[in-house]
Design a protein around this nucleic acid. Structure first.
Length: 444
RNA sequence: GCAGCUGUAGCUCAGUUGGUUAGAGCACUAGUUUGUGGAACUAGGGGUCGGUGGUUCGAGCCCACCCAGCUGUACCA
């Protein structure tokens, strides 16, 4: 008989998607609990919006409106294009526009949610990831911007980072706008290329950036990036101003004054911080980690920022004639988790069950009796859920990281005293059933 | 998108100038031990050699095209 070719489904995950293990999830939970506490303390409302939105509602800034699956995951139902959200800001703007009359002004909300981007993943960057956003809507008061920076710091420090571990960089879109006007850099393409070039300053250095500002730059692989065609005079002024670390715009000066009132010092003014080009209108922030992060192969990677944000006074206005200034900040949680797991070991309790071994199914009542006692005492426990001999059960307990097993076979049942085996030390002792919870707690 | 590199077992990889039935370590399963895990030993399962076509008596190895992944770069709300 001929062997039939069987269809085998792939075990691989789609590019950019990952399975997440318990250790990572518990670290993430820890961060999230810190976030929630801080947000409550700062008086923010908790909000959730759906994963999908109409592409039109959040697609104002998509690269190609005719092909909404570039960059985002989209599909068309009977009538409309729908997209998985690619951030939490665009849905917020939609929410504000929809509920404008009801919400308090100003409106402060925070949100935790998965977002998706249909683009090439990189080290520590995936196509599905968890974001945290905090936003102030309906106020031009720069205290909002300042407080976002303060609040992010408090979250990071609660998570165990010190002031040396991170820096909040601030800058203002107003600075580049005024400077570009002065230098007669054309709005549109030339201005965009110049901004993107300046954004690469910390990674490439001035000499490389300078190439992009003139004719263009060829990278190691031979790829060519078109330049901004600035003249020498423009570049000279640009270099001087961008390296000047003293703020000149009034918004930054005011924010710094507010920082002082908060006694917040862990920030840095850096005019080369650019962020996205599309919607920021005023102050912008970026949160950077200052310690080394390694990839799975132990190689140090350029980690970049773990979050950022800024003022976007016109975004809500796109939905209609709503004058609704806003400012917000977001953190890429998975990246923060990844970095934090390397930074230090958290005392994250991951309680593995005590395993009650089964010698004879006839005695199941005894096993479940012990199980109920342990669970009443809030001890994670289980009667061995599989089938097999004692050796197999021990191997199982060892593999799941169980702290102890309970052996209750013929010999023990005769005297009503189970054997408790500590799996870390290998020690065994016979214990009265009533005392089991207490003895086990000593091991945990 | 562009460029360079790489695709052999679940994972990490070896595979001679093209030559029988494609190997190792780890992992997995079973046993040595039917009441004892982490160690050792023994045995076993697991592969369309990324795909298609070509050259050849013969291809994991050579050629062409395709696909996928990695790295850099571009875009990034």
């Amino acid at each position: 008989m001929e062997k039939e070719k069987k269809f085998k489904p792939s075990k691989d995950l789609p590019l950019g998607f990952v399975d997440r293990q318990e250790k990572e999830l518990l670290t993430r939970d820890f961060i999230i609990s810190n976030i929630k506490e801080v947000m409550i303390k700062y008086g923010f409302q908790y909000l959730e919006t759906p994963s999908f939105e109409y592409t039109d509602s959040i697609g104002k800034f998509l690269p190609d409106k005719e092909r909404p699956d570039q960059g985002v995951f989209s599909f068309k139902d009977e009538k409309n294009w729908l997209s998985l959200r690619y951030d939490l800001t665009a849905p917020l703007a939609r929410y504000i526009a929809k509920n404008y009359l009801e919400i308090p002004k100003p409106f402060k909300r925070y949100q935790l949610g998965t977002v998706w981007r249909n683009e090439k993943p990189g080290p520590g960057r995936f196509r599905e990831f968890l974001q945290f956003d905090a936003d102030y809507v309906g106020t031009q008061n720069l205290q909002a911007d300042a407080e976002l920076c303060v609040l992010i710091s408090e979250i990071l420090e609660r998570c165990g980072l010190t002031k040396d571990d991170y820096t909040v960089k601030i800058s203002s879109r107003r600075f580049t706008k005024e400077l570009f006007d002065e230098l007669k850099i054309q709005p549109g393409e030339q201005s965009a290329v110049t901004l993107r070039a300046l954004d690469k300053l910390d990674r490439l250095g001035w000499e490389e950036v300078r190439k992009i500002l003139t004719k263009g730059r060829e990278d190691k692989s031979g790829d060519f990036t078109k330049g901004a065609d600035l003249n020498e005079e423009q570049i000279k002024v640009l270099e001087r101003k961008i390296k000047e670390k003293k703020p000149s715009t009034s918004d930054i000066l005011e924010i710094m004054k507010i920082f002082e009132a908060y006694n917040f010092t862990n920030y840095q003014y850096d005019p080369s911080v650019i962020r996205g080009l599309e919607y920021y209108t005023g102050p912008i922030f970026e949160v950077n980690l200052n310690f080394e992060v390694k990839n799975s192969k132990g190689k140090t990677i350029q980690f970049g920022s773990i979050g950022g944000g800024g003022r976007y006074d016109n975004l809500v206005n796109n939905f209609g004639n709503l004058d609704c200034p806003a400012t917000g900040i977001s953190i890429g949680l998975d990246r923060l988790v990844y970095a934090l797991m390397q930074k230090k070991e958290y005392n994250i309790k991951s309680n593995k069950p005590v395993v009650i071994c089964v010698f004879n199914k006839e005695n199941i009542k005894d096993y479940i009796g012990i199980l109920k006692k342990l669970r009443e005492a809030n001890i994670s426990s289980e009667v061995y859920p599989g089938e097999g001999n004692l050796k197999k059960q021990m191997q199982y307990a060892n593999k799941i990281g169980s702290p102890a097993v309970i052996l209750y076979g013929e010999d023990e049942i005769k005297y009503g005293k189970p054997t408790l085996r500590n799996l870390k030390s290998g020690e065994e002792s016979k214990i009265e059933i009533e005392n089991l919870p207490n003895e086990i707690k000593k091991i945990l």
